[in-house]
């Protein structure tokens, strides 16, 4: 293989798409939020969403949510073909309003968690997760 100017450009282009373009939030995601909150305002505090800044593989991304005083936490992957991930509903014997799971992300995008508190208020947290494509064989 000779290193021509063209090859260099192809390689360069390959490098720059490595993280892919961020995926935009779909209308479906906005609808899910409206359905869950009834359009109510959401506080930016009271909920913590932990997710890696860069996911090693979009197939298995560990995340954690925690919202003391919540009855339910909905998690959405705003750029997935179907944005729903999971909704944790906490019962009377929940030891905390905390949950951890592993999720699929179709590409670099925002993961959003919305808590519905016992007093009827809502809180929202969002994390951008960069999803890399692999080395050999994706």
């Amino acid at each position: 293989m000779q290193l021509s100017r063209r090859n260099v450009m192809i390689m360069g282009a390959g490098a720059f798409v490595a993280f892919g373009l961020p995926m935009r939030a779909s209308a479906a995601a906005e609808e899910r939020i409206a359905e869950f909150t009834g359009g109510a305002a959401m506080a930016e505090t009271g909920i913590t969403l932990t997710a890696p800044e860069i996911a090693e593989n979009g197939n298995t991304v560990p995340i954690e949510v925690s919202a003391p005083g919540a009855e339910a936490i909905m998690i959405l992957a705003m750029g997935n073909p179907t944005p729903g991930v999971a909704t944790f509903n906490f019962g009377p014997l929940a030891g905390s309003q905390y949950g951890s799971t592993r999720i699929r992300l179709a590409g670099t995008q925002d993961v959003v968690a919305i808590a519905r508190m016992k007093d009827g208020s809502f809180a929202r947290a969002s994390r951008n997760v960069k999803v890399t494509i692999g080395g050999c064989g994706g």
Partner: peptide, 24 residues
């Protein structure tokens, strides 16, 4: 070093069989 967006390891096989996140 990097190969595209991933690390190149020494290709050691002491961890095989391995559960890959890629194909679960």
């Amino acid at each position: 070093r990097m190969i595209r967006a991933d690390h190149l390891s020494q290709g050691q096989i002491n961890g095989f069989p391995t559960y890959r996140l890629k194909n679960t």
